[in-house]
Design a protein around this nucleic acid. Sequence first.
DNA 1: TCCCTGCGGGAAAGGGCTTTCTCTGCGGTA
DNA 2: TACCGCAGAGAAAGCCCTTTCCCGCAGGGA
Lengths: 357, 357
Amino acid sequence: MATLSDVARRAGVSPATASRVINGSSKPVTEELRARVLAAVAELQYVPNAHAQLLARSHRSAVGVIVHDVSDPYFAEITRGLQRVATDQGRLLMICNSYRDPDRELEYVELLRGHQVAALILAGSGYHDQAFTRQLNEKLAAYEATGGRVAVIGRHEHSGDAVMPDNRAGGYLAGRELCGLGHRAIGVVAGPRILTTTTDRLAGLRQALTEQGRELPERRIRYAEFDRDGGAEATARLLDADPELTAIVALNDSMAIGALATLRARGLAVPQQISVVGFDDMPIARDVTPALTTVRLPLVDMGVRAMSLVLGAGAPTPRVEVLPAELVRRDTAGPAPRSSRATAGSAPRARRGDAAS
Amino acid sequence: MATLSDVARRAGVSPATASRVINGSSKPVTEELRARVLAAVAELQYVPNAHAQLLARSHRSAVGVIVHDVSDPYFAEITRGLQRVATDQGRLLMICNSYRDPDRELEYVELLRGHQVAALILAGSGYHDQAFTRQLNEKLAAYEATGGRVAVIGRHEHSGDAVMPDNRAGGYLAGRELCGLGHRAIGVVAGPRILTTTTDRLAGLRQALTEQGRELPERRIRYAEFDRDGGAEATARLLDADPELTAIVALNDSMAIGALATLRARGLAVPQQISVVGFDDMPIARDVTPALTTVRLPLVDMGVRAMSLVLGAGAPTPRVEVLPAELVRRDTAGPAPRSSRATAGSAPRARRGDAAS
DNA sequence: TCCCTGCGGGAAAGGGCTTTCTCTGCGGTA
DNA sequence: TACCGCAGAGAAAGCCCTTTCCCGCAGGGA
């Protein structure tokens, strides 16, 4: 690889001058030398060694992001928001997938710290795990002590800046909607119980049911992986245990899609025989059939806010921004069927909005 | 940030010794000093500066990956394959999204080169653009000249190692299937015509139709963005121009989903009135209703192969691995309706496989 | 004519780490 | 007893850049 001094030598100038030309330094350089340097750069196909640059400049510019999995639409949307702000400010993003493995999350914090990122953003659910939480907080505190900025998205176990979707309110919305439709036997297809996202959403849902004089017993909840197959499998278990269910709340849209698959496989009509409500409103939600009724979270906006917090001026006290959840009524939730499973309920209501473009 | 010499000072040893302990060097260090160093590391929460390390070691370990968009399921799957091999070999992946912008692709090649990656993988369609192709090849050649390894996935404009999905054969498969079902008026919802992926798939499709004595005139092709909304919009234009279409081939599954949305919005029954075939077999394909008939590409495997090529021994001549496409019959393609649009065709065939887990 | 100013350029000092080379001191052999 | 060899530790030379500091020179004002 050609180095800066190769370029300088070829151009017949000092490395200092070459550097100034290449970086567009404010210090003036004669047109003639500038041209010679640029010519040498082109001839040698010179590309500065990023590590040497980062080392020489004290300036830290990249931002580290840790998500569960970028290819999961939930995080893809958040990342889109993060990117938008970062790009505007000329920041490079280093994105790491923890695949919901706490240890890997810890490792990535170190890794990113080692890469001298200016800020760190952790997106995705927190864990109900004291030991882990303490470790993570120690690491983050150490990082902040050296001037690093930290923000978390959707997890409340860290004490710093945070952007929180209102998971609890979202759960509440889902519960209230189904109660309003007359459902009494409501099952839940939940993510891993160690995730705070799961428990928060569940808490809101439970609150809604309780307020209506209903309840949400543990036997109507099945925990599984937070993905399509987890949803399919949990739904199957739920139906096996309690065939009288008239509604299912899936704690994210991927699980909801799995739930729909299982229902279809079993010949249960949605929403005539059984209703389904999802969570997140990922883009695909409107394209499944029937289109998914779900709780929308402003995912892109969450990313935008988090990146703005972290790149903006620091605050003396941690800031927590709570972003509201919103119910999106589509076609998978309808009135509870009158009698038993054998009778189909009323027709689904007309679909609102969301027609193809 | 604590530095290595801070650690050394605190442990009362030289930086050299500290470095040896931290990196597990083969050079022996007394147990006592080792313990002191490790204690100092823990107390100071020391994390080595990755840039300084990379600079000091001549050893290059990271691998650069350029894709159109990781959050697109097509690339998410490929990336999964890349990751698997990279992780096995202890390599870090740097993933960049070009968002199908050739200039950005060029920039990322430089950026990754600057970051001293050991290898570079470009995934995603190539472009019909002489000037760009030449520039890219120059940059890649320069990189290879300094010992960098390069592989491309799904693009044939580069002369080095390549993993190619058989796009043309896939297009052929889709065409043959529809011909076999008796379709004559087949429309195509295509991605941007500048992409080689588009033209390759189209070529295969055209060949199948030609062999059957049919044809594929340009007026039955609509080009749009390679995503859901592009598919929806192109389908609308196609139907407006030619309401007699009995089948639509979408050149990727995202577009197919958009197409289904448009058809549903217009009240056209799939596959009774109109058939749809997608391409890629992304995971969601089996979950839309009706489940999507599509051409499967071994995406994960493509990633695995590419990473193996690039991390394995070099070869004197470029290696090209062509991976086969395969038709996956589900529920969106059925026999062509007998007469006109008004009459529904025969019932869809029974759905094969793919039941919920 | 002399001095000061300011501009354009180079020398050199880091930045944090790895690694080779060198040095010290010990145990063992002749 | 003298010497050799080696284990274990440190000194120092890079790795490739950026940036401060300094220097020489030319032009302008007194």
